[in-house]
Amino acid sequence: MRLEPIANPGPARIYGLPALALGATVLVASVLALIAGANPFATLGLIVKGAFGSKFATLETLNRATPLIFTGLAVAVAFRAKLWNIGAEAQLYAGAVMTVLIGMHSWGAPWLQLPVMAALSIAAGALVLLGPVLLKTRFGVDEVVTTLLFNFIMLLFVSYLVEGPLKDPAGMGWPKSVPVAADLRLPRIAQGLRLHWGFALALISALLIWVIQTRTVLGYQIRAVGQNPQAARFAGIPVNAVLVKTALISGGLAALAGFSEVAGLKGHLSRDLSPGFGYTGIIVAMVALLHPLGVVLTALFVAGIFVGADSMSRAAGVPTYIADILMAVALLFMVLAILLTRYRVVWR
């Protein structure tokens, strides 16, 4: 077989194939439910109900989507420039560490201290990604492996902090950090609504990234570098400088996930702060076709599947890891579908 470019793909191809990919993912979900001895329709119904079936469920989904929007944006921004940032997990934890460091003692002026916390978290995350990116631009070291390895190093560093210098003396032996001061917790969006301002910050970030990508010179340069670095360099674009700027934005976004989880939801740092939000961000970004507003929708969808699978698992007995399988399958189907919107398979 070989691939032939399609000159003018019609709307049926452009929208039909991704829809088909999602349909195929649902099919896989049904098969997995059958294997687990459950009724596929009931299982899918329970997932949807568990994700969006009640006010409580919906808020839980929005809360779960918040860090995924941040890490999804982080990956989307980086992948646009073909900068393979697989280290959102490490950058998230860098932001979380900084949030605790700045937020553990209140200065008595939260209107000043909260923005400082957020800004320094962004800086910490940006710095963590800067290392691998400089190794890439200076020495040509593949950033995929270095960013991945940084995830493990960062997690050990966090483990050291929560068992050592930042350990909560009132933690009853649990390895968790001292809490963020009460007046530095992100307030809830509305009284009685279990949803904090981190979610709004995530939406604003998505809008901001969309504006940067479509309305600024940097956005144009990032796209150019991603499409063809040689051509971009030839056109006078400082490729390495653009990569560094992209890294700063990407690392900062991932760090905001850590900031928002600590200051908005958990109130402290622990080793299990993130159940792989950094890795799931890759799926979110790819399924969203790297579009910042698409990231928001996809993060809601992905968060819904995880939250829904949790509650379905309790009711129907299908292991909650079905959500992880579905995410990976959706990713693989989606990249294939996107390819087939531009190419036709010719069997010879």
Binding site: L32, M286, D324, I325, A328, L331, L332, V335
Partner: peptide
């Protein structure tokens, strides 16, 4: 190989998939 999809993305997808299938 035949489809020539990004080896980065597919590889990470396979890692997520295989890990999830084992856990499931």
């Amino acid at each position: 190989v035949p489809f020539g999809l990004s080896q980065h993305v597919v590889g990470l997808g396979i890692t997520l998939l295989a890990t999830a299938v084992a856990a499931f």
